[in-house]
Design a protein around this nucleic acid. Sequence first.
DNA 1: TCAACATAGATGACGCGTCAACTATTCCGG
DNA 2: CCGGAATAGTTGACGCGTCATCTATGTTGA
Lengths: 152, 152
Amino acid sequence: MTRWLDDDEQRAWRGYLHMQARLTARLNRQLQDDSGLSLADFAVLVELSEVAGGRTRVLALAEKLEWEKSRLSHQLNRMRARGLIDRQECPNDRRGAFVALTPQGRTTIEAAAPRHVETVREYLFDRLTPELVAALTDITDRVAARLAEDED
Amino acid sequence: MTRWLDDDEQRAWRGYLHMQARLTARLNRQLQDDSGLSLADFAVLVELSEVAGGRTRVLALAEKLEWEKSRLSHQLNRMRARGLIDRQECPNDRRGAFVALTPQGRTTIEAAAPRHVETVREYLFDRLTPELVAALTDITDRVAARLAEDED
DNA sequence: TCAACATAGATGACGCGTCAACTATTCCGG
DNA sequence: CCGGAATAGTTGACGCGTCATCTATGTTGA
């Protein structure tokens, strides 16, 4: 009784899987080559650079990124080892900690961002019509809505 | 001189990143819970189950999957340890090897496939109109074409 | 024939992501 | 005020993916 995918759905699904894998790999490599960052590093640095003082609580950061706290913890360890961020004690709540951008972290993200955006544009948006951009938004919104239903 | 993303592009891009991360995680978890497989396992088993005799040369498999051979090699090691596949010597070319589905591998993929497809349908295709499915195909084709230009 | 090169594939190190378990602190009801 | 639950965050193990390197075999051309 399985409802298999029809031909159009097959093409869409295989196309999606293929694009997803290649695009992610491409963006990762571009960031790595140009700035020594991974996509994960980039995501963390972007969030940090957008908060006042480049400094937040770890859990607040995890929520913004929608990452599990353990994932973030591992990531922050690696980034701290490379001098991109710093940890600071939290006096109010001594269980917690602040994460802060280091000057090097800020320099790095400011240098990396323009080239990363340019790459996203080159591979994705430069190839899409405004209608397709709207369709992409629609698709992702619908799927996100379905995914959100699980989180109850 | 950076051409930043405009609002519509921002929404599309953030939506894509969000959907991509969540959908992949969801599908991985479903497969893992229902069948003890990862998406990577599943991809390998699907290809193997589609070739005659459930048996191919490693490099041919890598090409079908569009995976690097080292990635595949690691993957096959893990799968062999779990009894899903088997390695066989290649008499013609003694550098090479065949990979073969084990009976257990075949049973596993045949049990896993229907539920996996059902999940893909539930999260993706059940939420999309035929127009959006067509748009998704269009988008992925365009991006794939750009990505393919690099491989010269 | 034999040295150079190409090909098939394996391996080790390291970053990434998940899960389960753990520590340390804070909160809250009796 | 105290004991149990909740919260903040860490840790270790393990699968996944990439890169660089290595081994063994096959191919080719002087």
